[in-house]
Simulated assay, not measured.
Amino acid sequence: MADSNSIALHTIDYQRLNELYDGDNEQIASLFELFLDEVFPDFGEIENEIERQNWPEVAQITHKMLPWVGMVGLTALEAKLRTIEAQAKAGSARDEIMVTWSQFKLGLNQSMPIIREELVKLTS
Results as ranks from 00 to 15, higher is better:
P56S: 13
M112Q: 13
Q103Y: 05
E19S: 06
Y21R: 04
T62F: 11
V58E: 15
L108A: 11
Q110G: 14
A79L: 11
F40Q: 12
I46D: 03
E49W: 09
L77H: 10
V99W: 09
K80H: 14
L108R: 12
W55D: 13
W55T: 06
I114M: 15
I114S: 07
F32R: 09
G44Q: 08
N5E: 14
K89E: 12
L74C: 11
I115M: 04
M1S: 13
L77S: 05
G23T: 11
N18I: 05
A88E: 07
S30V: 02
R16G: 02
A76S: 09
I114G: 03
E78K: 04
Q103I: 10
Y14L: 15
Q110R: 15
V72K: 06
A8F: 10
L34Q: 13
E49G: 02
I115Y: 05
F35E: 10
E51I: 12
L20N: 11
F104P: 05
V72I: 07
Q53V: 14
S124P: 00
E49Y: 07
I114Q: 08
L122M: 10
L106I: 09
L31N: 13
G44M: 07
E19P: 00
D24N: 12
V120G: 08
T11W: 14
P113A: 01
R16P: 03
P113R: 03
E33C: 09
Q87T: 07
I97G: 02
A88L: 10
I28P: 04
Q27G: 00
R52S: 15
M98Q: 15
W68V: 00
R116P: 04
S92Q: 12
H10T: 08
S111R: 01
E57M: 13
N54H: 12
T83H: 08
A29C: 01
I97P: 02
F35T: 06
N109C: 05
F104G: 00
D42L: 15
E38K: 02
N5A: 11
D24H: 15
E96D: 13
G70N: 10
K121N: 09
E19T: 02
I115D: 05
I7E: 07
P67L: 02
E49I: 01
G44I: 03
R116I: 01
E118A: 09
S111L: 04
E78M: 06
E85F: 12
Y14T: 11
L34D: 03
E49K: 09
V39R: 11
M98P: 02
A76R: 12
L20E: 05
G91K: 00
Q53P: 04
N48W: 13
Q110D: 15
Q110Y: 09
L119D: 14
M65W: 01
V39Y: 09
I84Y: 04
V120Q: 14
I28W: 03
R82W: 04
I115K: 05
W101M: 12
A76L: 00
R52V: 14
M1I: 01
A88H: 09
T11M: 08
N54E: 08
G107T: 04
L9V: 01
D24Y: 14
I84A: 01
A2E: 09
D13A: 11
D3Y: 02
Q60R: 15
W55Q: 10
H63S: 03
A59N: 08
S124T: 10
N54P: 13
F35A: 06
Y21M: 13
D22H: 15
P113S: 07
S4F: 15
D3N: 07
E45Q: 03
R94V: 10
